[in-house]
Simulated assay, not measured.
Amino acid sequence: MDLRIFTEPQQGATYDDLLAVARAAEDLGFDGFFRSDHYLHMGGDGGAGPTDAWTTLAGLARETSTIRLGTLVTSATFRYPGPLAVQVAGVDQMSGGRVELGLGAGWFEAEHTAYGIPFPPLGERFDRLEEQLAVITGLWETKPGETFSHNGAHYPVVDSPALAKPVQEGGVPIIIGGGGKRRTPALAVRYAAEFNAAFASAADSGRLFERVREVAGDAGRDPASLTLSAAQVVCLGNDDATLARRAAAIGREVDELRANGLAGSADEVVDRIGAFTEVGAQRLYLQVLDLSDLDHLADIADGVLRQLS
């Protein structure tokens, strides 16, 4: 089971906060450091305000050396696909080929209105997501010296030189996730290297995984070629006082976290992770919400990462 650290910087983290967490995660042996792509806080006052996902990842690409970096997930409503393909390819170059792109349709209407970003109806957002995936992958897959065109309703592209190119052969791995039963698994099977079930129970994650595997088989894709992952909030404390303190720091109750995430002692967290392993999860994103508590990362690495590795 790969373990990755997942952060929510829109709650008020600065770039320096993210750098400290990314470096700690790398030093402790976690597989990846990922961040959300949001422009508005969800509860609280937003602290120092949001940081742009790909701007910060570009900085982290130069200030880390081994850890995987990416978004979970970038909203397709925020950026045009051509410039996004250039941007992500550039960060991949800066990192030496360590970047992954989580891409979704977008859902948080308030952040769109707060920053003047159009927020079309759900059906159109999915149409735009599908077209963005076609453009981004098409640009990356175009051979050097050739051009790429796309006759799309939302993002027509004509004779693009399809530059810049990612370092990773075949392009940056794409992550698609969600609970949709039809379009989401179809898009994952067609475009993604990884399907993510975010904040669902192990049983519900298993059902989502089974649906994706079924769609892959029907489409003629080897289901084993698609990495299956989950995301869960984590709150570890090897004694009651530490656990209560860490839960309070993120505005949550211990019992609620135990019911809806990975909370408790290291052994308890490992047991909960085992339920996700049993339903097919190969990778887990641990949502860490208190970015000032680097000892939390160390405790997770010492008590959980070591057991799973």
Rank of each mutant, 00 (worst) to 15 (best):
G138Q: 02
G106K: 00
L129P: 01
V99N: 01
S36A: 14
G82K: 11
L69Y: 03
V73F: 04
G59R: 04
L101V: 03
P120S: 04
G43E: 12
L72D: 03
G82H: 09
V91R: 01
L139Q: 04
L139A: 06
L101D: 00
Q93T: 09
A76Q: 03
A24T: 11
Y115K: 12
L28F: 08
A110H: 11
G116H: 07
S36C: 14
F30D: 00
G123A: 12
A89Y: 11
E124T: 15
R79V: 13
A134P: 04
R35C: 15
G97S: 12
V73E: 02
E100P: 02
R125T: 01
L84G: 04
F126S: 09
G46N: 07
E130M: 13
A25Q: 00
V99W: 06
T137G: 05
A61M: 05
L69W: 03
D127M: 03
V86D: 11
S65L: 11
R35V: 15
Y115H: 13
G116A: 07
T147S: 15
Q132L: 07
G44S: 10
L101M: 04
G46Q: 08
A24V: 09
G49I: 07
T71N: 05
I136G: 02
F33W: 11
F119L: 02
L133K: 03
V99P: 01
E63M: 12
R35A: 13
V88I: 09
Q93A: 09
T147H: 08
I117E: 07
E130C: 12
E130G: 14
D92F: 11
A89W: 13
L72W: 06
R62V: 14
T74L: 06
R128D: 02
I67A: 00
G138R: 01
G123S: 15
F78H: 15
Y115G: 03
A110D: 15
D27E: 11
D92Q: 11
L129I: 04
W54K: 13
P83Q: 08
T147Y: 06
A89K: 05
L40I: 14
